[in-house]
Design a protein around this nucleic acid. Sequence first.
DNA 1: GTCTATAAAATGATAGAC
DNA 2: GTCTATCATTTTATAGAC
Lengths: 184, 184
Amino acid sequence: MRESTVKDRILDTASRLFYDQGYHVTGINQIIEEADIARASLYNHFPSKTDLLLAYLDRTHIEWFVALDNYLAPFATAREKLIALFDFRIGRQKRLRYKGCHFNKITAETSTDEEVFKRVKMHKERLRQYIRALVKEAGHRGLLEDDVLADTFLLLMEGGIVLGAMFRSSEDAEKAKRIAESLL
Amino acid sequence: MRESTVKDRILDTASRLFYDQGYHVTGINQIIEEADIARASLYNHFPSKTDLLLAYLDRTHIEWFVALDNYLAPFATAREKLIALFDFRIGRQKRLRYKGCHFNKITAETSTDEEVFKRVKMHKERLRQYIRALVKEAGHRGLLEDDVLADTFLLLMEGGIVLGAMFRSSEDAEKAKRIAESLL
DNA sequence: GTCTATAAAATGATAGAC
DNA sequence: GTCTATCATTTTATAGAC
């Protein structure tokens, strides 16, 4: 535990700044200053700023689904879990001050790095499958086919988060939730 | 016409780079080089890089709705226009190589500038009202209330575009269109 | 492994000639 | 209004002492 605290402090600080301010606008200088570590310590643990970015994305992906599993655990049925998934994202949206999805943010900032894209796709594809499994298990009014309904939920959800970032409000995500309920 | 070509070339080049690469990653140096103008000419027309960004957003907003009006003009009914609105965005998405919404991109890169936020909100709010007016005029199956249906369309649309940027595909926007059709 | 000091390049912006 | 030359900072990254 003790010996890894420097590396952790670097990644914690970088993650916070990458998300709050943006990746390109965050300089190595600010990271080492706020993490209170030496310049060369950063490069000892992370060969380049890009490596630090990839580590941030990897950890965010893992933590995201762990947090989701924990959040959904108390709910008994797949139907309840599906609605709770909207609440999960609305809660995060508020806590993170409407800055939106980590993976959307980095996509919007990055044009060429395939390693970044790979991680973004993996994250969203896993969410898509997660929703599909829940819809399949839930059963519903049959208004739409299973996979179409799952896609609808994903579209509504992502739309709600991205509009939330632009309006700095959860209104659209709350609407998305209500619409999802009415389709289930 | 002639005397404004320098200013136009600056804004054209900056717009292209801001969108393709990102705002913060695009330097003044690259803009003046690719626009083939002198450093001080840029600062003569635009007092700062931020002013150039705001000019880019203002022009994009105007051009966006002009292009939309032109695209929808041939369609007779509000119902057709609503579906065509999805096609409009899908067409742009493909032409712009799946880089997503200009206003989402700058939101994801900007954390503090209120002048930027103001323009983003204005753009999306106008789209929201645009859709509402069409839904009101279209009439529909009554599955959802008018404004709820309009919000659903906006959510589906934005979800489709943002997923399109992350997967570099129009699949999700196409799905959004089909779902919208089934709700109309 | 962590540190200080420094390098080489790029950043946004300005001065002053024409 | 456009130009060249230059400014002070800041950028990512490395060298070498401890």
